[in-house]
Design a protein around this nucleic acid. Structure first.
Lengths: 203, 203
DNA sequence: AGATAACCATACCGGTGGGTATACTCGGGG
DNA sequence: CCCCGAGTATACCCACCGGTATGGTTATCT
C-alpha cells in the first residue's frame, strides 16, 4: 500500500546561449507543426536566423535537438497541469476532472495533438535517443492519475489511474486524428462516471 | 432517435495485377513497420522483387500507395472485428467487451500500434490523399461503439459510444508509446464499468 | 595580450528522396 | 500478324538530406 506521490515536473534547464535558445524554440515549433523527418536542419537554422554550423556547435546532432524538443514540451505541459491542479486543492473527483480541464485549454493551442505520440510514430523501432523521453512522459501521466485516485481515497488507485490515463490519451487522439471536436468533454464525462462508480476505501 | 446501424466493412478490392499485389503488400509492411517517410519507393520496389517503373505504372505516386495501404488495413481490421462480433450474437455488454477482445488479439501481431494514428502524425496539416482515410477509420470505430451501445438498450448510446471509443484509442496508444503491456485489459475493465453504470433505456 | 567561446558565411560531401525516360521481353486477343 | 498491357532493366533528373570543413568576426575573461 505504498503511497503514490504526485509526480513533480521533469526539469530540463540546460543553460542555453541566446542563439541556441532561438534554435531550440524554432525547432520545437517546426517539429510539432510538420513532424520530425519533414523538417531539415537547414530550415531550422534559417528560420532561427542562424546557420547549420551554429546548430551543430550547440546540439551536436538533429537527434539531440529532437530529444530536447520533447523534454521541453513535457516540462511545459507538466508545469501547466500541476498549476491547474494547485487551483483545485480539495482532494476528490474534482481534482481528477481538473486534469481534463487543463487538457482542454492546452489543446486549444496545440492543434497537432500529442507531440510524444507523433514522435513515437516516426522513431519507434529505432534506438533514437528521444524514445525514453516519450516513454517517460506517458509514465508520468499515468502516475499523475494514479496519485489523484489515491488522494481521493478510492479503491484500487492503480487500476483507476490506468483507466483514467487511457481516457486522457484517447481524447487527444480522437480530437486530432478522429476530428472529434468535443473529445475532451467526452473523456471528462467518462472519467466522472468511473470515479463515481469506484468504491471508496473503507478506512 | 434514429437507429445507428452496425457499420459494414469499408471495401477496397480494386482488381490488382500479380506484381501490383506484391507491391501493395510489401509497401504495407514497410510503411507500418518503419513509417511512411522513412520508406522510399526504391526500397518498396526492390523488396517486392520489381522496379520503380512498375510501381509507378500501377499506382502513379507514392501518396496513392500510402492511401491504398491505409484503406486495406482498415478493411482487414474491420473484417476481423465484425467476425469476432458475429461469434457473440447476444446483445448487451458482452458484445461491447468483445471488441476489446478482438483488439487484444489484433495487437498481439501489430506491435507498431495504430497505423492511422501513425500516418496522421506524418501527414497532418497537408492535403495528403490519405487524410480522409484516417478520419473515416476513426469515425467507423466510433459508430461501431455507438451501435453496440444502442443495441444493448442503453441510454444515450451516442455519449457512451464516444466514451468507449476513447478507451479503445487510448489503449492502443498506451500499449505502444506508453509501454503499458496490459492496456487493452485495462480498457476492457473500464468499458465494463461504464456499461454497468449506464442507465438502461426505459422501454 | 592571449585565449576562448559564441557566432556568421559559405562551400562541400556522399547518400537518398520522388519521379521520369528509354528500350527491351513476353503473352494473349483482335 | 500485330498490337498492347504487364513486366524488366537501367540510367537519369534535380532537390534535399544530415553532417563536416574552412575561415572569419566579435566580446569576454584571465
Amino acid at each position: 500500500m505504498a503511497t503514490t506521490a504526485l509526480p513533480s515536473v521533469t526539469r530540463v534547464a540546460d543553460p542555453m546561449t541566446p542563439v541556441g535558445e532561438r534554435l531550440a524554440q524554432t525547432a520545437s515549433e517546426l517539429f510539432y507543426a510538420r513532424g520530425i523527418r519533414a523538417v531539415g536542419v537547414e530550415l531550422i537554422a534559417a528560420d532561427a536566423g542562424t546557420t547549420k554550423k551554429t546548430l551543430y556547435d550547440r546540439f551536436g546532432s538533429k537527434d539531440a535537438l529532437v530529444a530536447l524538443y520533447l523534454r521541453r514540451r513535457a516540462e511545459r505541459w507538466q508545469t501547466r497541469a500541476l498549476q491547474h491542479l494547485a487551483e483545485h486543492p480539495e482532494p476528490g473527483a474534482a481534482r481528477v476532472l481538473a486534469v481534463f480541464d487543463a487538457l482542454a485549454g492546452w489543446l486549444d493551442e496545440q492543434w497537432r495533438g500529442c507531440a510524444f505520440v507523433n514522435a513515437y510514430a516516426e522513431i519507434a523501432g529505432t534506438d533514437h535517443v528521444a524514445l525514453p523521453v516519450v516513454r517517460a512522459e506517458k509514465a508520468w501521466m499515468r502516475q499523475l492519475f494514479t496519485a489523484l485516485a489515491e488522494e481521493a481515497g478510492l479503491d484500487d488507485p492503480q487500476d483507476l489511474g490506468g483507466q483514467l490515463h487511457l481516457l486522457y490519451e484517447g481524447a487527444i487522439v480522437a480530437l486530432t486524428a478522429g476530428d472529434v471536436h468535443d473529445s475532451v468533454g467526452i473523456a471528462r464525462d467518462a472519467a466522472a462516471r468511473l470515479v463515481a462508480a469506484s468504491p471508496r476505501l473503507t478506512r
